[in-house]
Design a protein around this nucleic acid. Structure first.
Lengths: 215, 215
DNA sequence: TATTACCGACAGGCAGTCGGTCTATAGAAG
DNA sequence: CTTCTATAGACCGACTGCCTGTCGGTAATA
């Protein structure tokens, strides 16, 4: 049977299917045949809309990225929220994985997803750092923080958080995790040039229950 | 023609070939046929010595890892070298890519090597951090440094350095790189609880010419 | 003679290509 | 306002070539 649709609609159908399959079986573990079957189209159709399997991945990341960073940016721009509170909210927004981004983030750490993971990592580091730096700059103006290198400082924090709390790079027991969070807050206080204990507030960014991700 | 060798010798021949090929064309870009051809053996022989292509990669990382961390550990244990000097030497040793590890590290950042890269990253973070922490602890005893969380502190430094200076995660002009190094040293000073400027000495860790890697 | 190292044909699966087909639609003709 | 027609955009599926891993059998070594 032959069903003709608007290109955009088909594209999204394919992305939705790929999203789900990559989440279940990883990028390497998903064949284009799997996607074909799930969407109910022929090989040629897939390659009419995307130039390669990797192209699908890139489009998926793009979609995810736009949605997530957009939400974060919106919160970051809301000057009515106090600086510290706003930082927490931005980070929390980044941890939420529903919306347009779907469920990839839940499964991104499987070895089969190494390339996708790397690409998302890059997007996060280069996308989140400037957003957070913007808020930090306000905090500096207000005399809350004190650092001559706000961008690099935030880059360090984002890169570290992503690597250690997000990935399976470091295997931790629950206790180790707790102590690492404590240490992280302490180190962040030093980096931002504030008194010890004044950022304890940030602890809530690390969701207590899930033991999940962060950005 | 049929040439029989000791298993160990063959294994190493295969690893040597794979090392070179992965470096040239990446893991995904190298087929087992490429390796077969280069070593001059048949398919069956390869799979007699290794259970899969990924198994070859793991063995390669293992070999690299052992060699590199061994050298670093040796330097780190030499208490005759002053603490600060020793840190620099350990880091420099990690940057050298010859020896048993060969030339993989030169090419690890290609997208085709995402999985290998991720595995090496993990090894570095979990291998280098304790070595450096050992030296830092000495430094704390000597009153040189001051931090209640030496391990987590070093973990942050290692993770950041690896991500930003090592990878292609962050694209930088030369000037940006220089300013990032300055900022990094400043931030490290704060993390280690020392006076601003007292670690300027560390600048040399970032080889001036190559613009290369770090750990 | 037994074990260890080796061989190469083969199976199964994969990504991407290509010539060809269908269909929606715009615009001309009636 | 309807009917016809040309065209571009969407779609199809057989096919190619490559790739990894297997397996039954073979040669060398001790």
């Amino acid at each position: 049977m032959r069903i003709v649709k608007q290109a955009e609609e088909r594209r999204n159908e394919i992305l939705d299917a790929a999203d789900e399959l990559f989440a279940q079986k990883g990028f390497d573990g998903t064949s284009t045949n799997d996607i074909l079957e799930k969407v109910g189209i022929a090989r040629g159709t897939l390659y009419y809309h995307f130039k390669s399997k990797e192209d699908i991945m890139d489009a998926l990341i793009e979609r995810y990225n736009t949605c997530l960073l957009g939400a974060a940016q919106e919160i970051a721009s809301d000057r009515s929220i106090p600086v510290k509170e706003r930082i927490v909210r931005v980070v929390m927004a980044l941890n939420v994985s529903d919306g347009g981004g779907r469920e990839i983030m839940e499964h991104i750490h499987k070895p089969q997803n190494a390339l996708m993971h790397q690409k998302i990592q890059k997007v996060i580091i280069n996308g989140v750092t400037p957003i957070l730096t913007g808020i930090i700059l306000e905090g500096i103006e207000q005399g809350l923080f004190n650092t001559p290198f706000p961008y690099e400082c935030m880059e360090m924090i984002v890169a570290y958080t992503n690597t250690v709390f997000d990935d399976d790079m470091v295997e931790m027991t629950n206790e180790e995790r707790v102590s690492r969070i404590q240490a992280f807050i302490f180190n962040t206080e030093r980096l931002l040039g504030v008194e010890t204990g004044s950022l304890k507030y940030f602890t809530q960014m690390f969701g207590s229950e899930t033991g999940g991700r962060n950005a």
